[in-house]
Write a protein that binds this DNA or RNA. Structure first.
Lengths: 185, 185
DNA sequence: AATCCAATTCGATACTTATCGAAATAAATT
DNA sequence: AATTTATTTCGATAAGTATCGAATTGGATT
């Protein structure tokens, strides 16, 4: 998940936490010792260790009074190795808004005046464009084929294709006999 | 440098910046397109791109009106590969005062005149105090037990305990027969 | 030259979080 | 049981920063 990646980086994006990792790479330390070494209060160090522990980079073992923390080096190596794998990159964009995709396609295929440069061949892009074009029609209102063509001609010369695709995508309905069209929902 | 590492992680510890990286891993995008895809304002995206660019992960090329940003994949691989190398870890603790723990213990247990409030019970703290006390003796010089006691009495009334602990910690040596003491090394 | 458009910069705001001190917890020694 | 010691948790504060809108900049197009 993308969340994982963000929190991992968040945990590592603090100078004192990196120092703790560096110190624990040499030998285990108690909270008190780390506090003295870093010139921080124990509560602050505890806070940092809690974050490091939450992503599995350090662990503690009780030793008399002390909580002795140690670095999990294999976890560190493992996590850093696969940081920007293909899956992680894909996951990071997984939740990018689908609407946003439409907007991007529309931007790519329209001119400043809103007309279409070309009608996309790819289905996904075509769908996005159709959702954009259909907004020119009022919901429920009836249009003759001539009216439909007039409106579509402001987008592209090939009004027949646009009309057919709109119906095919179920964005517009057509009454068989009278040649009337309307936008549903 | 440690600074480098922290800022690198800081740059990557934001969900939208990770999304930008994920998107640019697919293809270059302009600021405007990224803003649409991420549902952010252009100024915000610009802010993010500026940070990404500052650590060398992305670069821009001008294309007509647009600034088209692209990911520097080799830089990304390079930086992530060596994230926690030995040198980086060492650098992160370079400015940590190794004696800080001793100093803190000494502060806690001594009065202004340098004498001890009490002799610590805990071994680690006692060791730190002993390392402090032993400095009153010259390396190699021979001391009679009476002389040792005189010197130790400036630190604490319980000279016998101090003397015994110093020998036990191997900070001072004692010759069995003549009752002579000296500080080694 | 004048105008447009995207990008950037700037100022303000809201949210996150590192840090501390105090209180609560835990564990061990007396 | 009572006390000491280290750690954790909690509440408050201060510093950092993501985000936005407005103003400015810098290139293109007219």
């Amino acid at each position: 998940m993308s969340e994982d990646l963000v929190s991992f980086f968040k945990v590592l994006s603090d100078a004192n936490r990196l120092k703790i990792i560096g110190l624990l790479a040499q030998q285990p330390y108690s909270v008190e010792e780390l506090a003295a070494l870093l010139d921080l209060k124990a509560s602050t160090v505890s806070h940092h260790l809690s974050k490091l522990s939450k992503v599995g980079l350090v662990s503690a073992r009780a030793d008399s009074y002390y909580n002795v923390y140690q670095l999990d080096e294999t976890a560190l190596q493992e996590k850093t190795r696969s940081l920007f794998s293909q899956e992680k990159l894909a996951a990071s964009v997984a939740d990018v808004d689908a609407d946003a995709y439409d907007h991007k396609v529309i931007r790519d295929y329209t001119r400043k005046d809103g007309s279409l440069k070309i009608i996309p061949a790819q289905k996904k892009k075509l769908d996005a464009i159709l959702r954009y074009v259909v907004k020119a029609f009022k919901v429920g209102k009836r249009y003759s084929e001539k009216q439909v063509n007039e409106i579509l001609s402001t987008y592209h010369a090939d009004t027949a294709s646009l009309r057919r695709e709109l119906v095919g995508a179920n964005l517009m309905k057509r009454e068989g006999g009278g040649g009337e069209y309307w936008r549903e929902e």
